Computed example of a mutant assay.
Amino acid sequence: MSRTWNQYVVKQENKTLVLTTVMNHTPISRANVAKITGLNKGTVSSLVSELIDEKLVEESGPGKSSGGRRPVMLLFNGNAGYSISIELGVGYILGVITDLNGQIIEQDTIQLQTTHFNTIFPIMINLIKGLMEQVPKSRYGVIGIGVGVPAVVSRDGEILLAPNLNWKNVELKTKLENIFNLPVYIENEANAGAYGEMRYGSSQNSHHTIFASIGIGIGVGMILDGKLYHGLNGFAGELGHMTIEKDGKTCRCGNRGCWELYASEQAVIDMAIKRGLIAADQGEPFEQLIQLANEENQAVIELFEEIATYIAIGLTNCINIFNPEHVIIGNRLMRAKEWIYPTIESYILEHAIGFHQNKLKIDSAKLGVYSTISGMAAFTIEGFLLDQKRNHA
C-alpha cells in the first residue's frame, strides 16, 4: 500500500513538473520537456496526454526540425480558466479578470467616497458579480478570487488592521467564500505587488527585491531568496510605519513620525493644501498637482522633490537593512515619476552604504498600477493549479 501511494505521489510531482515546464517555456516540444525535467520520454508523453485531457495543455502546429520529423509543440492553455482579482485602495476599487497566464481580459474601477466597511463591502460584491458575468466560457470557469488590501492580514485571510481604511478584525476571506463558494485569497497589497512584479514584471530575474507601494500610505513587499517574505506571523513589510522623525506627526497606527506621513500621496496632498498650492475642495487634489507640475509650477515641482527625499530616506534604510539587488517603486505616486525619480536615485546613490549599491537596480514598477492585481492573480492561479494536483491525488 505504501509503495503504491509513494508511486502515485511521485507521479503527481512529475506531472506538476511537466506542467510547470510547459507554462514557463511554451511553446515547447515533448522532447525538450524531457530534456529540461530529466524525465524519460515515455513518462513525459503519458503525463502530457493527461494534461491535454484536463485541458491544461494543448497541441499546436509543428515546430522547427533538428534533423528528423518536425515536433508537435505544446502550449499551456491559459484559457482553461479565469481569475477575479481585486485591489482595494483608499478611495477606489480596481477589479480585473485574468486568464491563467495572468493576462488581463476585462477591468473595472469604482471610485469610493467612504472607507466604511459596511458601505464598501456590497460595492465590492457587485463589482465581483459584474466581472463574473463577463468571464468567457471555459473548462474550469472562475477558479478563485484574490483581494489585495492595504492592511495587516493574518494567514487565515482576516484583516487585522487597515489604518488608512479604519478597519479592524474583518474576516474578509470568510465573508467572500460564503457568498461565492470559491477559493478566496487575501493578501497585503504591497506583498501582492512584489509578487506580481516577480512573476510578470520587472523583477522576474531577481531573487532579492524590495517593492515599495506608495499611494495614500506606504507598504513594502519583500522577495528574499526568491520567496515572498512574511515574517514569523505573516506581518512583515509594515515599513511605512517605521519612524523617520523623532516626536513627529501622529499616525493612525498609534506611532509617531511614521515614514508614510512624510513620503506618501497623502503627504504630498496635505503639504500642498497647507502651502496653498491647491484647494482641498476642488476636484482630485493629486491630479491638480500633476497638472501644475506639467505647467512647470516651480513650487509644486519643489514639493515633489521634497517628498522624493523622504521616499529615498526610507528606501535607503531598506537597502541598508536587506541588501536587495532590485528596488521597485510602485502604486499611484509614480504618476509623478518625472519629478520624483531623479531625486530618489541621487539620494540613494549618495547615502546608501557603498557595497549595498553593487549591482543594485532602482526601477519604477513595470506593471504600473497593476502590480498588486497581477500578484493576486498569481496567488489565485497557483492555488488553482495546486488544487488540481491535490484533486488528482
Results as ranks from 00 to 15, higher is better:
residue 4 T to S: 12
residue 6 N to Q: 14
residue 6 N to W: 12
residue 21 T to F: 04
residue 23 M to T: 11
residue 28 I to H: 00
residue 42 G to M: 12
residue 56 L to F: 12
residue 64 K to G: 02
residue 66 S to R: 12
residue 67 G to R: 04
residue 70 R to K: 13
residue 70 R to A: 12
residue 78 G to C: 09
residue 79 N to C: 02
residue 82 Y to M: 03
residue 91 G to V: 09
residue 99 D to E: 06
residue 107 Q to K: 15
residue 110 I to Q: 12
residue 117 F to G: 00
residue 123 I to K: 15
residue 124 M to W: 03
residue 124 M to E: 02
residue 126 N to T: 12
residue 131 L to M: 07
residue 134 Q to L: 15
residue 135 V to T: 07
residue 138 S to C: 01
residue 139 R to C: 11
residue 146 G to S: 05
residue 146 G to E: 07
residue 147 V to K: 04
residue 155 R to C: 06
residue 157 G to E: 10
residue 159 I to T: 06
residue 159 I to A: 10
residue 161 L to I: 11
residue 161 L to K: 13
residue 166 N to F: 12
residue 173 K to H: 13
residue 180 F to N: 03
residue 186 I to P: 05
residue 190 A to F: 09
residue 192 A to E: 05
residue 202 S to L: 11
residue 203 S to Y: 04
residue 216 I to Y: 14
residue 219 G to N: 03
residue 222 M to S: 08
residue 222 M to E: 12
residue 222 M to L: 15
residue 237 G to V: 09
residue 246 K to H: 12
residue 249 K to P: 09
residue 257 G to H: 03
residue 262 Y to R: 01
residue 271 M to A: 14
residue 271 M to Y: 13
residue 271 M to E: 15
residue 273 I to K: 02
residue 275 R to I: 03
residue 276 G to V: 02
residue 277 L to G: 05
residue 281 D to C: 05
residue 281 D to K: 10
residue 284 E to D: 15
residue 286 F to S: 05
residue 291 Q to S: 12
residue 292 L to T: 03
residue 294 N to T: 06
residue 301 I to Q: 01
residue 329 I to R: 00
residue 342 P to C: 11
residue 348 I to K: 01
residue 351 H to P: 02
residue 351 H to W: 05
residue 355 F to T: 04
residue 356 H to P: 01
residue 362 I to V: 11
residue 364 S to V: 14
residue 365 A to L: 00
residue 365 A to G: 00
residue 379 F to P: 00
residue 382 E to H: 11
residue 389 K to Y: 12
